[in-house]
């Protein structure tokens, strides 16, 4: 199954089809994540929320909601905002929305949660390195 386009390939570790273990932590098959929802995964000891959007892109951000101070973001509702259709998750606690691409809070841009590289390799979702800086995301 190769129809799924990998979202961001971890540049640091190099990727090759079938060798997903090299790219980072394999967390589950893509099918395990319902479209427009998320799961929580443990990546190098940290709680990461991994989402699958309507068009089968995958995103990984920290599971920790800095407003509510609890590890819950994977349980939020996934949707899009505005004409540009920014993919976001709304915290299940107090509903602040986070841009899945950048981790930036759409309601309070000063707040940004960490993001991870993530890709789908042979139908398996693989979370790579934690991104050091927040880069603005080209569509």
């Amino acid at each position: 199954m190769t129809t799924t386009e990998a979202r961001r390939v971890a540049p640091s570790r190099g990727t090759s089809d079938g060798a997903y273990r090299d790219a980072g932590t394999a967390i589950c098959p893509l099918d395990r994540i319902a479209r427009e929802s998320g799961v929580a995964a443990l990546v190098d000891g940290e709680a990461v929320a991994v989402f699958r959007t309507y068009d089968d892109q995958v995103f990984a951000i920290s599971n920790f909601d800095p407003f509510g101070r609890a590890s819950v973001l994977s349980r939020g509702i996934v949707g899009t905002r505005g004409e540009e259709e920014i993919p976001f998750v709304a915290s299940p606690l107090l509903k602040q929305r986070f841009d899945l691409r950048t981790g930036a809070c759409l309601d309070d841009p000063a707040v940004v949660v960490p993001t991870w590289d993530v890709q789908v390799v042979d139908g398996m979702v693989v979370v790579g390195a934690r991104r050091e800086t927040i880069t603005s995301c080209e569509p």
Partner: peptide, 10 residues
């Protein structure tokens, strides 16, 4: 339009 949000989905 779009893909919905935490208001219209519930």
């Amino acid at each position: 339009r779009g893909r919905g949000c935490d208001i219209c989905k519930p």
